[in-house]
Protein backbone atom coordinates (compact mmCIF):
# COMPACT_ATOMS: atom_id res chain seq x y z
CA UNK A 1 0.00 0.00 0.00
CA UNK A 2 1.06 3.52 -0.57
CA UNK A 3 2.11 5.83 2.21
CA UNK A 4 -0.61 8.15 3.45
CA UNK A 5 1.23 11.34 2.70
CA UNK A 6 1.44 10.70 -1.01
CA UNK A 7 -2.15 9.72 -1.00
CA UNK A 8 -3.30 13.10 0.28
CA UNK A 9 -0.96 15.17 -1.87
CA UNK A 10 -1.87 13.74 -5.23
CA UNK A 11 -5.45 15.09 -5.54
CA UNK A 12 -4.31 18.46 -4.26
CA UNK A 13 -1.68 18.71 -6.96
CA UNK A 14 -4.12 17.62 -9.61
CA UNK A 15 -6.77 20.09 -8.54
CA UNK A 16 -4.37 22.98 -8.12
CA UNK A 17 -4.21 24.38 -11.69
CA UNK A 18 -7.98 24.34 -12.18
CA UNK A 19 -8.79 25.73 -8.76
CA UNK A 20 -6.12 28.40 -9.03
CA UNK A 21 -7.51 29.68 -12.32
CA UNK A 22 -11.08 29.58 -11.02
CA UNK A 23 -10.15 31.32 -7.79
CA UNK A 24 -8.28 34.15 -9.46
CA UNK A 25 -10.46 34.78 -12.47
CA UNK A 26 -13.93 33.83 -11.27
CA UNK A 27 -14.23 33.59 -7.49
CA UNK A 28 -12.31 36.71 -6.62
CA UNK A 29 -14.28 39.00 -8.99
CA UNK A 30 -17.45 37.16 -7.99
CA UNK A 31 -16.97 37.98 -4.32
CA UNK A 32 -16.27 41.59 -5.20
CA UNK A 33 -19.37 41.79 -7.39
CA UNK A 34 -21.35 40.14 -4.61
CA UNK A 35 -20.56 43.04 -2.28
CA UNK A 36 -21.78 45.62 -4.82
CA UNK A 37 -25.25 44.51 -3.88
CA UNK A 38 -24.97 46.09 -0.42
CA UNK A 39 -23.59 49.35 -1.73
CA UNK A 40 -24.88 52.52 -3.26
CA UNK A 41 -22.64 52.36 -6.28
CA UNK A 42 -23.65 54.47 -9.25
CA UNK A 43 -20.81 55.20 -11.62
CA UNK A 44 -22.04 58.72 -12.40
CA UNK A 45 -21.83 59.62 -8.71
CA UNK A 46 -18.39 58.26 -7.78
CA UNK A 47 -18.17 60.27 -4.55
CA UNK A 48 -21.40 58.94 -3.11
CA UNK A 49 -20.38 55.29 -2.93
CA UNK A 50 -21.50 53.93 0.44
CA UNK A 51 -22.68 50.83 2.27
CA UNK A 52 -26.48 50.78 2.35
CA UNK A 53 -27.32 47.31 3.62
CA UNK A 54 -30.28 45.70 1.93
CA UNK A 55 -31.72 48.85 0.30
CA UNK A 56 -30.96 47.62 -3.21
CA UNK A 57 -32.88 44.41 -2.53
CA UNK A 58 -35.77 46.38 -1.10
CA UNK A 59 -35.90 48.49 -4.26
CA UNK A 60 -35.76 45.33 -6.37
CA UNK A 61 -38.73 43.89 -4.50
CA UNK A 62 -40.79 46.90 -5.64
CA UNK A 63 -39.57 46.87 -9.23
CA UNK A 64 -42.32 46.00 -11.71
CA UNK A 65 -39.78 45.49 -14.51
CA UNK A 66 -38.05 42.88 -12.37
CA UNK A 67 -41.22 40.82 -12.05
CA UNK A 68 -41.99 41.15 -15.74
CA UNK A 69 -38.46 40.00 -16.59
CA UNK A 70 -38.78 37.15 -14.12
CA UNK A 71 -41.99 36.00 -15.77
CA UNK A 72 -40.41 36.25 -19.22
CA UNK A 73 -37.32 34.41 -18.00
CA UNK A 74 -39.48 31.53 -16.81
CA UNK A 75 -41.17 31.27 -20.20
CA UNK A 76 -37.84 31.70 -21.97
CA UNK A 77 -36.10 28.93 -20.01
CA UNK A 78 -38.96 26.44 -19.97
CA UNK A 79 -39.95 27.06 -23.59
CA UNK A 80 -36.41 26.84 -24.92
CA UNK A 81 -35.58 23.85 -22.79
CA UNK A 82 -38.70 21.91 -23.76
CA UNK A 83 -38.24 22.63 -27.47
CA UNK A 84 -34.53 21.85 -27.49
CA UNK A 85 -35.02 18.69 -25.48
CA UNK A 86 -37.94 17.23 -27.43
CA UNK A 87 -36.53 18.01 -30.86
CA UNK A 88 -33.00 17.09 -29.83
CA UNK A 89 -34.21 13.76 -28.47
CA UNK A 90 -36.20 13.10 -31.64
CA UNK A 91 -33.16 13.85 -33.77
CA UNK A 92 -31.00 11.60 -31.59
CA UNK A 93 -33.48 8.74 -32.07
CA UNK A 94 -33.58 9.29 -35.82
CA UNK A 95 -29.80 9.24 -35.99
CA UNK A 96 -29.49 6.08 -33.93
CA UNK A 97 -29.68 3.64 -36.82
CA UNK A 98 -26.99 3.77 -39.41
CA UNK A 99 -27.87 5.00 -42.89
CA UNK A 100 -25.87 6.06 -45.87
CA UNK A 101 -24.49 9.57 -45.54
CA UNK A 102 -25.03 9.68 -41.78
CA UNK A 103 -21.68 11.32 -41.11
CA UNK A 104 -22.36 14.13 -43.55
CA UNK A 105 -25.92 14.48 -42.26
CA UNK A 106 -24.56 14.77 -38.73
CA UNK A 107 -22.03 17.40 -39.73
CA UNK A 108 -24.80 19.53 -41.21
CA UNK A 109 -27.35 19.22 -38.42
CA UNK A 110 -24.77 19.71 -35.68
CA UNK A 111 -23.25 22.79 -37.30
CA UNK A 112 -25.33 25.45 -35.46
CA UNK A 113 -23.35 24.46 -32.38
CA UNK A 114 -20.20 25.83 -33.98
CA UNK A 115 -21.56 29.31 -34.76
CA UNK A 116 -21.41 32.18 -32.29
CA UNK A 117 -24.62 33.26 -30.60
CA UNK A 118 -24.16 36.76 -31.90
CA UNK A 119 -24.11 35.64 -35.53
CA UNK A 120 -27.06 33.34 -34.99
CA UNK A 121 -29.01 36.29 -33.64
CA UNK A 122 -28.15 38.53 -36.58
CA UNK A 123 -29.10 35.80 -39.06
CA UNK A 124 -32.43 35.09 -37.42
CA UNK A 125 -33.27 38.75 -37.24
CA UNK A 126 -32.89 38.88 -40.98
CA UNK A 127 -34.77 35.64 -41.63
CA UNK A 128 -37.74 36.93 -39.62
CA UNK A 129 -37.84 40.39 -41.18
CA UNK A 130 -41.42 41.06 -42.35
CA UNK A 131 -40.50 42.78 -45.63
CA UNK A 132 -37.52 40.96 -47.08
CA UNK A 133 -37.06 38.04 -44.70
CA UNK A 134 -37.41 34.57 -46.25
CA UNK A 135 -39.59 33.16 -43.46
CA UNK A 136 -42.42 35.56 -44.15
CA UNK A 137 -41.99 35.17 -47.89
CA UNK A 138 -42.24 31.39 -47.65
CA UNK A 139 -45.24 31.45 -45.35
CA UNK A 140 -46.99 33.93 -47.65
CA UNK A 141 -46.06 31.90 -50.71
CA UNK A 142 -47.43 28.73 -49.14
CA UNK A 143 -50.68 30.56 -48.47
CA UNK A 144 -50.43 30.05 -44.73
CA UNK A 145 -50.86 33.75 -43.98
CA UNK A 146 -52.48 36.66 -45.72
CA UNK A 147 -50.06 39.38 -44.72
CA UNK A 148 -46.55 39.38 -43.32
CA UNK A 149 -46.09 39.18 -39.58
CA UNK A 150 -43.49 41.32 -37.84
CA UNK A 151 -42.48 38.43 -35.61
CA UNK A 152 -39.93 40.28 -33.51
CA UNK A 153 -41.99 43.45 -33.13
CA UNK A 154 -45.34 41.93 -32.25
CA UNK A 155 -46.07 41.94 -28.52
CA UNK A 156 -47.38 38.36 -28.64
CA UNK A 157 -44.82 36.89 -31.03
CA UNK A 158 -41.56 38.52 -29.92
CA UNK A 159 -40.78 36.15 -27.07
CA UNK A 160 -41.95 32.99 -28.88
CA UNK A 161 -39.83 34.01 -31.88
CA UNK A 162 -36.62 34.38 -29.91
CA UNK A 163 -37.44 31.10 -28.18
CA UNK A 164 -37.84 29.46 -31.59
CA UNK A 165 -34.41 30.72 -32.63
CA UNK A 166 -32.96 29.48 -29.36
CA UNK A 167 -34.56 26.07 -29.82
CA UNK A 168 -33.00 25.86 -33.27
CA UNK A 169 -29.63 26.82 -31.78
CA UNK A 170 -29.85 24.22 -29.00
CA UNK A 171 -31.08 21.13 -30.86
CA UNK A 172 -27.53 19.92 -31.67
CA UNK A 173 -26.49 20.06 -28.02
CA UNK A 174 -29.26 17.68 -26.96
CA UNK A 175 -28.92 15.54 -30.06
CA UNK A 176 -25.23 14.99 -29.32
CA UNK A 177 -25.70 14.38 -25.60
CA UNK A 178 -28.73 12.13 -25.87
CA UNK A 179 -27.42 10.40 -28.99
CA UNK A 180 -24.36 9.19 -27.16
CA UNK A 181 -26.59 8.15 -24.28
CA UNK A 182 -28.68 6.03 -26.65
CA UNK A 183 -25.55 4.44 -28.04
CA UNK A 184 -24.59 3.23 -24.59
CA UNK A 185 -27.83 1.30 -23.93
CA UNK A 186 -27.03 -2.43 -24.24
CA UNK A 187 -28.59 -3.92 -27.41
CA UNK A 188 -29.54 -7.12 -25.55
CA UNK A 189 -32.22 -5.28 -23.62
CA UNK A 190 -34.05 -4.42 -26.85
CA UNK A 191 -33.65 -7.90 -28.27
CA UNK A 192 -35.06 -9.46 -25.14
CA UNK A 193 -38.01 -7.10 -25.22
CA UNK A 194 -38.63 -7.81 -28.88
CA UNK A 195 -38.76 -11.51 -28.15
CA UNK A 196 -41.28 -10.80 -25.42
CA UNK A 197 -43.40 -9.16 -28.14
CA UNK A 198 -43.02 -5.56 -27.06
CA UNK A 199 -43.83 -2.93 -29.72
CA UNK A 200 -41.66 0.01 -30.61
CA UNK A 201 -43.53 2.35 -28.31
CA UNK A 202 -43.37 -0.07 -25.38
CA UNK A 203 -39.67 -0.58 -25.89
CA UNK A 204 -39.19 3.17 -25.90
CA UNK A 205 -41.17 3.70 -22.70
CA UNK A 206 -39.87 0.67 -20.80
CA UNK A 207 -36.25 0.55 -21.88
CA UNK A 208 -35.03 3.69 -23.56
CA UNK A 209 -36.48 6.29 -21.21
CA UNK A 210 -35.46 4.69 -17.90
CA UNK A 211 -31.95 3.98 -19.16
CA UNK A 212 -31.59 7.55 -20.34
CA UNK A 213 -32.87 9.29 -17.20
CA UNK A 214 -29.43 10.15 -15.74
CA UNK A 215 -28.25 11.59 -19.05
CA UNK A 216 -31.47 13.52 -19.50
CA UNK A 217 -31.23 15.01 -16.05
CA UNK A 218 -27.61 16.03 -16.45
CA UNK A 219 -28.29 17.59 -19.83
CA UNK A 220 -31.38 19.46 -18.61
CA UNK A 221 -29.55 20.74 -15.56
CA UNK A 222 -26.55 22.14 -17.41
CA UNK A 223 -28.65 23.52 -20.19
CA UNK A 224 -31.17 25.29 -17.99
CA UNK A 225 -28.42 27.25 -16.22
CA UNK A 226 -26.91 28.08 -19.56
CA UNK A 227 -30.16 29.28 -21.14
CA UNK A 228 -31.01 31.31 -18.05
CA UNK A 229 -27.84 33.35 -18.47
CA UNK A 230 -27.80 33.44 -22.28
CA UNK A 231 -28.55 37.00 -23.43
CA UNK A 232 -27.03 37.25 -26.94
CA UNK A 233 -30.10 36.25 -28.95
CA UNK A 234 -32.57 38.51 -27.19
CA UNK A 235 -30.15 41.40 -26.99
CA UNK A 236 -29.55 41.46 -30.74
CA UNK A 237 -32.93 40.28 -32.03
CA UNK A 238 -35.38 42.38 -29.99
CA UNK A 239 -33.33 44.35 -27.48
CA UNK A 240 -35.94 43.19 -24.95
CA UNK A 241 -38.74 44.86 -26.90
CA UNK A 242 -41.33 45.75 -27.82
CA UNK A 243 -42.08 47.44 -24.50
CA UNK A 244 -40.10 44.87 -22.45
CA UNK A 245 -42.22 42.01 -23.85
CA UNK A 246 -39.10 39.91 -24.38
CA UNK A 247 -36.96 41.32 -21.58
CA UNK A 248 -35.39 38.60 -19.42
CA UNK A 249 -33.43 38.98 -16.20
CA UNK A 250 -29.96 39.00 -17.75
CA UNK A 251 -30.90 41.53 -20.42
CA UNK A 252 -32.47 43.65 -17.71
CA UNK A 253 -29.24 43.29 -15.74
CA UNK A 254 -27.37 44.60 -18.74
CA UNK A 255 -29.56 47.71 -18.77
CA UNK A 256 -29.16 48.42 -15.07
CA UNK A 257 -25.40 47.95 -15.12
CA UNK A 258 -24.38 49.45 -18.43
CA UNK A 259 -27.13 51.92 -19.32
CA UNK A 260 -28.15 53.22 -15.90
CA UNK A 261 -24.63 52.58 -14.57
CA UNK A 262 -26.13 51.47 -11.26
CA UNK A 263 -23.74 48.72 -10.24
CA UNK A 264 -25.17 48.43 -6.74
CA UNK A 265 -28.60 47.62 -8.11
CA UNK A 266 -27.10 45.35 -10.74
CA UNK A 267 -25.26 43.54 -7.94
CA UNK A 268 -28.52 42.97 -6.06
CA UNK A 269 -30.10 41.69 -9.26
CA UNK A 270 -27.20 39.31 -9.86
CA UNK A 271 -27.32 37.92 -6.33
CA UNK A 272 -31.06 37.41 -6.76
CA UNK A 273 -30.50 35.59 -10.04
CA UNK A 274 -27.94 33.42 -8.30
CA UNK A 275 -30.32 32.56 -5.48
CA UNK A 276 -33.21 31.87 -7.87
CA UNK A 277 -31.04 29.49 -9.88
CA UNK A 278 -29.75 27.80 -6.73
CA UNK A 279 -33.31 27.27 -5.53
CA UNK A 280 -34.39 25.97 -8.92
CA UNK A 281 -31.50 23.55 -9.09
CA UNK A 282 -32.09 22.38 -5.54
CA UNK A 283 -35.68 21.58 -6.48
CA UNK A 284 -34.42 19.87 -9.60
CA UNK A 285 -32.15 17.59 -7.58
CA UNK A 286 -34.98 16.70 -5.21
CA UNK A 287 -37.18 15.85 -8.18
CA UNK A 288 -34.38 13.78 -9.65
CA UNK A 289 -34.01 11.81 -6.44
CA UNK A 290 -37.77 11.38 -6.14
CA UNK A 291 -38.06 10.02 -9.67
CA UNK A 292 -35.10 7.69 -9.39
CA UNK A 293 -36.37 6.32 -6.07
CA UNK A 294 -39.81 5.81 -7.57
CA UNK A 295 -38.25 4.26 -10.66
CA UNK A 296 -36.51 1.72 -8.52
CA UNK A 297 -39.73 0.83 -6.66
CA UNK A 298 -41.70 -0.01 -9.79
Amino acid sequence: MLPNRQRSLMPVLMLAPALLLIAVFILYPLVKAFFYSFEQYVLTAPNQRAFIGLDNFAALADDADFYLSLKNTTIWVLGSLAGQFILGFALALLLEKHFRGRTLYRAVVFSPWAISGFLIAVMWKWLLNPQYGPVNQLLLGAGLMERPIAFLSHPDFALPSVIAANVWYGIPFFAIMLGAGLASIPRELYQAAAIDGAGALQRFVNITVPAMLPVIFAALLLRSIWIFNFADLIWVMTNGGPANKSQILVTYLFTTAYKNLNFGYAGALSVTIFLLLAAGIGAFFLLNRFISVKGRQT
Binding site: I22, A33, A231, L253
Partner: peptide
Protein backbone atom coordinates in the same frame (compact mmCIF):
# COMPACT_ATOMS: atom_id res chain seq x y z
CA UNK B 1 -18.32 25.59 -6.10
CA UNK B 2 -17.95 24.41 -9.67
CA UNK B 3 -21.69 24.46 -10.28
CA UNK B 4 -22.08 27.73 -8.38
CA UNK B 5 -19.63 29.55 -10.65
CA UNK B 6 -21.98 28.85 -13.52
CA UNK B 7 -24.93 30.49 -11.85
CA UNK B 8 -23.71 34.03 -11.21
CA UNK B 9 -24.21 36.27 -14.27
CA UNK B 10 -20.86 36.73 -15.98
CA UNK B 11 -21.75 40.24 -17.06
CA UNK B 12 -21.24 41.68 -13.61
CA UNK B 13 -17.82 40.07 -13.26
CA UNK B 14 -16.45 42.22 -16.05
CA UNK B 15 -15.57 45.29 -13.98
CA UNK B 16 -13.89 43.56 -11.00
CA UNK B 17 -12.09 41.18 -13.32
Amino acid sequence: LLIATQMFPILLLVVPL
